[in-house]
Design a protein around this nucleic acid. Structure first.
Lengths: 190, 190
DNA sequence: CAGCACATGTAATTTGTTACATGATTGC
DNA sequence: GCAATCATGTAACAAATTACATGTGCTG
């Protein structure tokens, strides 16, 4: 039930198309929410019908036409009401950790391959996040003042960064652990 | 599709009932996987039918009877095959962060209430995690040797701990940020 | 000329949640 | 006596993924 609020939340900052929203969900806010376009478009239709958003059809020549969605006053009210609602808890599904859980019963090299793959992704994405934080600070988004509309985005970005760092740290530590296991196995095998 | 592998993974370490599995999913492995009993029981039935697990019916007098599930050799093989499968990525849904994202448009006190509530939970759970890590170390689960069957569980626990610490750190920082906003608002309001 | 970015949608299927259903024992 | 723990299941509903469907223009 909170996809609608995620959409309203994103639209509360800026008007966007369904396509833009989809991109947000797998980049900027991807670390705390995600959704595919096939889920987003129907929900936008619902929100429109309920009057929580409106859209303007923008005709384009060199690209497909698009619908730019804007949150309405009712939409903002609904969002505000939701904020003060007893919070559903965070959920995580991490198949990598599930694989690590059973690492004792498989060739540690298999797990290592997966860890290294994920690690490479995280290194890349980590750099992008750090860059984003610097830019946000430069833009003054970190000022804790009531007029600073960018503070919320900055705070979530900061959370993403800390989480990301912790995960990277763990990845590196894990890789080192399993490398030692592999070494020990090689020695015993000879 | 990976609930089945999560179940097989848990059963690879020890034989458990559906009820036990449910508890694991909202405590020990809860930070990287979760499922309700209504999803678990039918999946156990499927796994039984496919021969990946078997169960033994244990009759009890002072408690309801139970089915203790054990992974089969085929089950272990299926799990091993899955480990080396191209990994689905981690997904997160965090309604708290969604609320923070839009904090600029609401009374920061509302957000503060939510943050403090979550913070209290995290402090409590953090202590439990730290305790668990100490015990695991004492039991030698941290040795990176091929014979150490507990290493996988220790590694995931460590990940949980690091993630948890990062989140707590962020919660405290966030609370401080919003307190400053509230102060600034009070000053301006007078 | 192949593949990607843009852009929006629907249909089929799989996952996951909430609610319904039952029932004994133990601790407060 | 009332709530919690133990224990297993089904049914109804909501949420999410994968696949189907279409079409232009730019870039390598």
């Amino acid at each position: 039930m909170s996809l609608r609020f995620a959409l309203l939340g994103l639209l509360a900052r800026e008007s966007l198309t369904g396509y833009d929203l989809t991109k947000r969900f797998d980049s900027t806010v991807g670390f705390f929410w995600s959704a595919k376009h096939s889920q987003i478009y129907p929900e936008l239709a619902n929100l429109t019908q309920e009057g929580l958003v409106t859209y303007e059809l923008v005709t384009q020549t060199s690209k497909p036409n698009k619908k730019v969605y804007t949150i309405t006053e009712e939409g903002r009210a609904a969002l505000r009401a939701w904020i003060d609602t007893p919070g559903d808890r965070r959920t995580v599904k991490d198949p990598l950790l599930m694989r690590i859980w059973v690492v004792g019963m498989v060739d540690p090299n298999l797990a290592l391959r997966q860890l290294r793959e994920v690690s490479a992704e995280y290194e890349k994405r980590g750099a992008a996040l750090e860059q984003a934080e610097l830019e946000a600070r430069a833009a003054g988004a970190d000022r804790p003042t009531p007029d600073n509309m960018g503070l919320g985005a900055f705070m979530t970005l900061r959370c993403g960064l800390l989480q990301h760092q912790a995960y990277r740290e763990w990845l590196n530590w894990s890789i080192a652990q399993l490398e030692r296991v592999v070494e020990a196995t090689a020695k015993a095998g000879v």
